[in-house]
């Protein structure tokens, strides 16, 4: 305990400290502003370069279905369709898979399983093995994170050489049996919407899984207990209590993944078929805006660059709209939770 005689150790901040504080604050403002400026600059530049094409083509570019430089006809409706179709399908598959994996991890099934195996040998509390269940669980989590580190060109190759051959027989079998249904109206001859969506689903898996996992483990354990205490089974607890409670986080994860899927370029350019087709069929080749850009900018002259920038702007707007709509839904979910 300090006594009265002790020298007073409190003093006001020095001029130097004030200066450092101010410098720190202003540099934070500066970097923050830089991000905004950068974004604005990119959008502006795209807009500027795309402007001639926008003036020349107007909305016909967005609703046109032909991309034929020889006939001077340019339309990106099939690409818009392909972008939305492949991302939505990929997100659908990826969400189901990703949330399931997140549940699997958050519920500790992995650790519990390892613990059970260890307990068969009576090793579960020994020095060496007692942390093993958690270690295995962390390892599995890391593996899923590692999916995000695979370059998308590798995903593309994997899709071409593994996914397509693997699903082709089944797809064609479905097509033969059910060709009356629009979704199966064409045969899968190689690249197409479905293989693209499957690979997209795996690419967005780490995003969906890790964020959903965080949302699920953030659900207070006492809520779980409440549900079990009422005599709910594990699945009733997961579906009735845990998922609804974690819904905002899971939805946020899906939204983020959707943004990623919309803009994914390389893997899709390799897998979607780059064909200007507008079809409901899951097995039909298609094209996406990002793939269109990647495939055409190489030999593009001034005029094509302007067209491609116009297409890029359309992609930007789609992403923006998806994000705004998503944020609105998210806000609603969160408000509902916090409302007094």
């Amino acid at each position: 305990m300090s006594t009265v005689e002790e020298p007073v150790s409190a003093r006001p901040p020095t001029a130097g400290e004030y200066a450092a504080n101010g410098a720190f604050r202003w540099s934070c403002y500066g970097f923050g502003a830089l991000v905004v400026v950068l974004l604005a600059y990119i959008v502006l530049e795209i807009f500027r370069l795309g402007w001639p094409a926008m003036q020349e083509r107007g909305l016909a570019f967005v609703v046109g279905t032909v991309w034929d430089p020889n006939r001077n006809e340019f339309g990106i409706l099939p690409e818009i369709w392909g972008t939305l179709y492949s991302s939505l399908l990929g997100i659908l598959i990826g969400s189901v898979l990703g949330v399931a994996v997140a549940i699997f991890l958050a519920e500790g099934f992995v650790a519990a399983g390892v613990f059970w195996v260890l307990s068969r040998f009576g090793l579960q509390y020994t020095r060496l093995w007692s942390h093993f269940p958690e270690q295995v669980e962390t390892f599995v989590k890391t593996l899923i994170q590692l999916l995000a580190a695979i370059p998308s060109v590798v995903y593309g190759l994997w899709g071409i050489f593994v996914v397509i051959p693997a699903i082709r027989p089944m797809c064609n079998w479905i097509h033969e049996g059910l060709s009356g249904i629009p979704f199966f109206s064409t045969a899968l001859s190689g690249p197409g919407i479905l293989p693209a969506a499957i690979v997209l689903a795996i690419m967005v898996l780490p995003i969906i899984t890790s964020i959903s996992y965080e949302a699920l483990v953030a659900v207070p354990p006492k809520i779980r207990e409440a549900s079990f205490g009422l005599g709910a089974t594990r699945w009733e607890t997961i579906l009735g209590v845990l998922l609804p409670t974690a819904a905002p986080g899971i939805f946020g994860a899906i939204l983020l993944a959707f943004g990623r899927a919309l803009g994914e370029t390389m893997a899709l350019a390799m897998l979607v078929g780059n064909s200007n087709t507008l079809s409901l069929s899951l097995f039909s080749p298609a094209n996406t805006i990002a793939a269109l850009l990647a495939n055409n900018f190489g030999e593009a002259g001034d005029r094509e660059v302007s067209l491609l920038m116009y297409a890029a702007l359309v992609l930007l707007i789609i992403t923006l709209v998806v994000n705004i709509l998503g944020s609105l839904v998210l806000q609603k979910l969160v408000v509902k939770e916090g409302k007094r």
Binding site: P220, I223, E225, F228, G231, T245
Partner: peptide
Amino acid sequence: PVAVRRHIGMVFQQPNPFNM
């Protein structure tokens, strides 16, 4: 155990209502 808990209910030390 699920059946057991349906016959033997519980109120916990901390309030734990569901988010509904």
